[in-house]
C-alpha cells in the first residue's frame, strides 16, 4: 500500500538549531543511566511545549509522576497500561471537535503518546491498531527496552531471541527467549499510515528529525525507539549510548523510515560489526554458546537483507531541499 505523503511542513533540525529544552524535568526517578527517559526527553525537545502527552503505565509513567511531584512541563495524562492509543484518540477527537465548534482557538497541539514495548507490542496492540486505522493525527512513540522492566524484567513479545528474562530464563533446557522479536514497525506500516520510523537516541539528530517528520504528516505516525535499560539488560550504566550505537552498527537495530509505504534506510552501515560485539557487553546474553551467537548473527543478516530488499523495491523519494530549516 503506497501513498504520497505531504512533508512540506517538515521543519528540519540541524546541528545549529537543536532545541534544547526537554519537557521532562530533572528530578525524575529513573534508574541511573536510563536511556529510555533520555529518548523520551529527546522526543519532547523536538516537539516543544505545544503538546499533550498521554502516557501508558510503565517505567516512564511512574518515574515522572510520583505524587506530589511531576516531571512534566507539558499537559500529561496517564490512564492505564493498554490504552495509550485510545486515550490519545479521545484527546485528538476532542481537540478537533472543540476547535470546529469554536470552543478552543489556535492550532492543534501535538498529541503524543508514550508507551513501552509491553504496552505497545502486547497489551496495547489492539488500542494502537484501532487508533492507527482510524487515522487520528497523533504520534505514538514506543520506547522499546525489550521487556517489562517496570515489573522486574519479564519477557515481552519485543524481547530479542536468546535474551534471558525473569519469565524467559535461560536454563539447561532453555536458551532464554525462544521467539524472535515482534516486528512492530512493520505491523504499524501495514496500517497504511503516513509515517513510521525506527530511532536511536545515539543518533539524536536523526531521532529528532523523525519526530519533526511525524509532526508534519497529516495522520498517525509511529516511532519505535531503541531504549537501553542498564538495569534490565545487565550492562554498565555508562555504556547506554555506545551500546545503542553498537545496535545500529551491527544491524541489530537498523534505522529506517517508512513514508507512505516507501522505505528509506537512514543509517547505512558500510561494514557491519559482528553481533557478538553487541551481545557480549550485556548480561542478558551471557549464557549464549558460540553456535547460538552464530544463529543470532544469521537472524540479523536475514532481517537486514529483507529490509534492504524492501527499500530497493519501494524506495522513498529523496528528501527535497525545500524543507524549511529553523534558525
Amino acid at each position: 500500500m503506497l501513498r504520497d505523503v505531504d512533508l512540506s511542513g517538515y521543519q528540519k533540525i540541524t546541528g545549529k538549531n537543536v532545541p534544547r529544552e526537554s519537557m521532562v524535568a530533572s528530578g525524575h526517578r529513573a534508574c541511573q543511566g536510563c536511556v529510555e527517559v533520555l529518548a523520551m526527553g529527546m522526543v519532547t525537545r523536538a516537539v516543544g511545549k505545544d503538546c499533550i502527552v498521554c502516557n501508558a503505565t510503565g517505567c516512564m509513567e511512574i518515574i515522572t509522576s510520583s505524587f506530589p511531584q511531576t516531571a512534566w512541563k507539558t499537559p500529561w495524562i496517564h490512564v492505564a497500561f493498554e490504552n495509550a492509543g485510545a486515550v490519545a484518540s479521545g484527546i485528538e477527537a476532542a481537540l478537533t471537535a472543540m476547535t470546529r465548534k469554536g470552543k478552543r482557538k489556535g492550532p492543534l497541539p501535538t498529541v503524543l503518546a508514550f508507551a513501552g514495548d509491553g504496552a505497545t507490542a502486547d497489551i496495547g496492540l489492539q488500542a494502537l491498531s484501532g487508533a492507527l486505522e482510524r487515522g487520528h493525527k497523533f504520534i505514538y512513540v514506543c520506547l522499546d527496552n525489550e521487556a517489562y522492566m517496570n515489573t522486574g524484567v519479564q519477557r515481552s513479545s519485543s524481547t530479542p531471541f536468546g535474551a534471558t528474562t525473569t519469565t524467559s530464563p535461560a536454563g539447561k533446557k532453555s536458551i532464554g527467549q525462544s521467539t524472535r522479536k515482534k516486528n512492530l514497525p512493520a505491523i504499524c506500516a501495514a496500517h497504511d499510515i503516513p509515517y513510521v520510523a525506527t530511532c536511536s537516541p545515539a543518533y539524536h539528530l536523526d531521532l529528532m528529525n523523525k519526530v519533526r517528520k511525524a509532526m508534519a504528516v497529516d495522520g498517525p505516525a509511529y516511532l519505535h525507539i531503541y531504549s537501553v535499560c542498564p538495569t534490565g539488560w545487565g550492562c554498565k550504566p555508562e555504556i547506554g549510548i555506545s551500546l545503542a550505537k553498537l545496535a545500529v552498527e551491527t544491524n541489530v537495530f537498523p534505522l529506517y523510515e517508512v513514508i507512505g509505504g516507501r522505505y528509506n534506510i537512514t543509517k547505512k552501515v558500510a561494514k557491519p560489526k559482528p553481533v557478538l560485539d553487541y551481545l557480549k557487553v550485556q548480561r542478558r546474553f551471557r549464557h549464549l554458546a558460540e553456535s547460538d551467537v552464530a544463529g543470532i548473527q544469521k537472524q540479523v543478516d536475514d532481517s537486514w537483507a529483507y529490509l534492504n530488499a524492501l527499500a530497493a523495491a519501494f524506495p522513498a523519494p529523496k528528501e527535497k531541499g525545500g524543507a524549511k530549516e529553523e534558525e
Binding site: 485510545a86 484518540s89 479521545g90
Partner: peptide, 16 residues
C-alpha cells in the same frame, strides 16, 4: 469498549 471508555476519558480530560 475498553477503548470507548479510554477515549472518553481522554476526550473529557481535554474539556469536551
Amino acid at each position: 469498549e475498553h477503548s470507548a471508555m479510554s477515549a472518553a476519558v481522554g476526550s473529557s480530560a481535554t474539556g469536551a
